[in-house]
């Protein structure tokens, strides 16, 4: 119960720190980048970037990318393929900088974006490697759970999705502390991942709560992305662009909530451990 109270306090503090503005800046830049990618995809059907989209959707589906509304219907799938490299190469950096800025803000120290970026740059390789490990683990768990469920019984897609998401949340809860350990304790990526697993083992329920709440924030836009064809034909294909941007925004909000509360929770727990 005390653990859950700590988690709730972490969320409250993280949200409160937003008043200082800057802790969310790195993730806001990442949100702008994703919005720019969505707009680029939406407006360019035959320009230079079209080659990139085609590369992301090879085979017979590539032809559909130059037609309306198939192009917009394919957007979640195509841009979804861009997510993993973006998360490893860009989001990991933004998350690192956010963790540092939140920690500084929590300690009441002066916030400097430049300093935050410089520190994240110096830890970039470790951030990217740990992000890659987490992504690979998530990918493996999704694939494995889908394959296992297919082998066991023919279950409805909604159930399959629910089980896959639950497994994904557990994996994320286990690996999520890698970023603060890289940024705040100067650990190497492998060491940070190992320590994250151990830390999460000791505080599993809290870790699960830390990842589940931000995930819940993104659920509405995730559901919208599940059936783009129905949205295109029943509402409008252009609504898919708006829902994709809304999804990126919710991801930004959830990302800040996750990194902010995580950092506060780690700092709090470490302080308690030191006192003991």
């Amino acid at each position: 119960m005390t653990g859950i109270k700590s988690v709730l306090k972490a969320f409250r503090v993280a949200v409160g720190l937003l008043r200082r503005g800057r802790p969310a800046a790195p993730l806001a830049v990442y949100f702008l980048l994703k919005t720019a990618v969505v707009l680029l995809y939406a407006r360019d059907s035959s320009g230079a970037a079209a080659h990139l989209w085609r590369a992301l959707r090879p085979g017979p589906g590539a032809e559909a990318l130059s037609h309306y509304p198939d192009r917009l219907i394919a957007m979640p799938a195509v841009l979804g393929r861009l997510d993993i490299p973006l998360e490893i190469l860009v989001l990991s950096f933004a998350q690192g900088a956010t963790v540092l800025l939140v920690a500084l803000a929590a300690r009441g120290e002066r916030l400097s974006l430049r300093a935050g970026a410089a520190r994240a740059r110096s830890r970039y390789v470790h951030l990217a490697v740990s992000a890659a490990i987490v992504s690979a683990a998530l990918f493996a768990v999704f694939r494995l759970s889908a394959a296992l469920l297919h082998r066991i019984a023919a279950i409805p897609r909604a159930w399959e999705l629910g089980i896959g998401i639950s497994a994904g949340l557990v994996v994320q809860a286990i690996f999520i502390y890698a970023v603060p350990f890289v940024m705040l304790e100067g650990r190497s990526s492998i060491d940070a991942v190992k320590r994250s697993v151990m830390f999460a083992g000791r505080h599993f329920v809290e870790s699960l709560a830390l990842v589940a709440v931000p995930f819940a924030v993104t659920v509405p836009t995730l559901l919208l992305a599940l059936n783009p064809r129905a949205i295109a034909f029943q509402l409008s294909p252009e609504f898919l662009v708006q829902s994709q941007i809304a999804g990126a925004f919710m991801e930004f909000a959830a990302g800040y909530l996750l990194m902010g509360s995580l950092t506060i929770y780690v700092l709090d727990t470490r302080m308690k451990e030191e006192k003991r």
């Binding site: 702008l32 707009l39 680029l40 035959s46 320009g47 230079a48 079209a50 309306y68 509304p69």
Partner: peptide, 30 residues
Amino acid sequence: AACAIAALVLFGACGSRRGDERYEAEKKLF
């Protein structure tokens, strides 16, 4: 950073005119 993002958005604006016209026509047909 803003310029880089704007450049990214404008990057694709130089598409082939015929392809764009067909895409526009498909949009109107829809």
